[in-house]
């Protein structure tokens, strides 16, 4: 039997403890937004470095000030992502804002080696670069390589992720609102026939996700199994929800 075609992007990882965990890789859009926020933070840090430059320049001398400025800029330029990812458990400020996190493909936390690697390869991911591509504290390119790699891999990995064996995942599931109240009274009902495991799962997931769909979408999704549940339209939806609730809670 062929493996079922996956519709979602969830990645199943089996731990040494024999249990499977699910990671939800983040796509290019949230990652791009996180990157923009991180660039703003770099600029902010640069302004702080300038302030430091003026203070040291005034107190010690202009040459010492220049030295301090260049060293600080060096640390921001090459260290911003690495330091945040390693010391803040995989989250730069931008990633934290968007609820993302860098992890190893095993689900473990990133350490120095992996983080340094993925962030140095960033310069390959950035290609093609802007003609005047260095804004002194942040390097900027169009991320064409990274984007292509992201879209071509199952787990949305840019080149740096592939080489360092890392993933960017959503930190927590976005399912807080899923069990919000349905606006219909549902009576748990036993299905009239024996269901396979996949079919039972389909009913459960229908029940759990129904609250996020419009009524017509619910009816549309319930219509292919009208013969099984013996009703169509709104009544079909209520039956399907009833069966789902029955399977889940019994």
């Amino acid at each position: 039997m062929a493996a079922p075609v996956k519709l979602d992007t969830l990645q199943t990882i089996e731990l040494a403890e024999g249990v499977q965990i699910l990671l939800r890789p983040a796509g290019p859009l949230p990652r791009a937004l996180a990157l923009i926020i991180d660039m703003l933070f770099c600029v902010l840090f640069f302004l702080l470095a300038l302030l430091l430059f003026f203070i040291v320049g005034r107190l010690v001398g202009i040459e010492a000030g220049v030295g301090v400025l260049l060293l600080t800029v060096f640390v921001i330029y090459w260290g911003y992502f690495v330091l945040y990812e390693v010391l803040r458990k995989g989250q730069t400020p931008g990633k934290k804002f968007l609820g993302l996190r860098v992890v190893r493909t095993s689900g473990a936390r990133v350490r120095w080696g992996a983080s340094i690697m993925r962030n140095l390869v960033r310069f390959a991911d950035m290609m093609p670069l802007l003609p005047q591509w260095e804004l002194w504290v942040v390097a900027f390119g169009f991320y064409l390589f990274g984007m292509t790699s992201c879209l071509a891999t199952r787990r949305f990995q840019r080149l740096g992720d592939l080489i360092a064996d890392t993933l960017v995942v959503y930190d927590r599931s976005s399912t807080g609102e899923l069990n919000s109240a349905l606006r219909v009274a549902v009576h748990p009902t036993a299905p009239g026939l024996v269901l396979t495991r996949e079919e039972q799962l389909a009913f459960i997931q229908f029940t759990e996700r129904a609250a996020t769909w419009s009524d017509s979408r619910k009816e549309e999704l319930a219509s292919p199994i009208a013969a099984v549940i013996g009703a169509t339209g709104r009544e079909g939806v209520v039956r399907a929800l009833g069966i789902g609730t029955w399977i889940r809670d019994s």
Partner: peptide, 26 residues
């Protein structure tokens, strides 16, 4: 022989190295 030039060499030369590396990836 001062701190300023040291800062410049760190910034410039290490950046060149990292870019040579990133270029190699392509």
């Amino acid at each position: 022989s001062n701190f300023g030039m040291f800062g410049f060499y760190i910034m410039n030369n290490v950046s060149i190295n990292f870019r040579i590396f990133a270029g190699g990836v392509i």
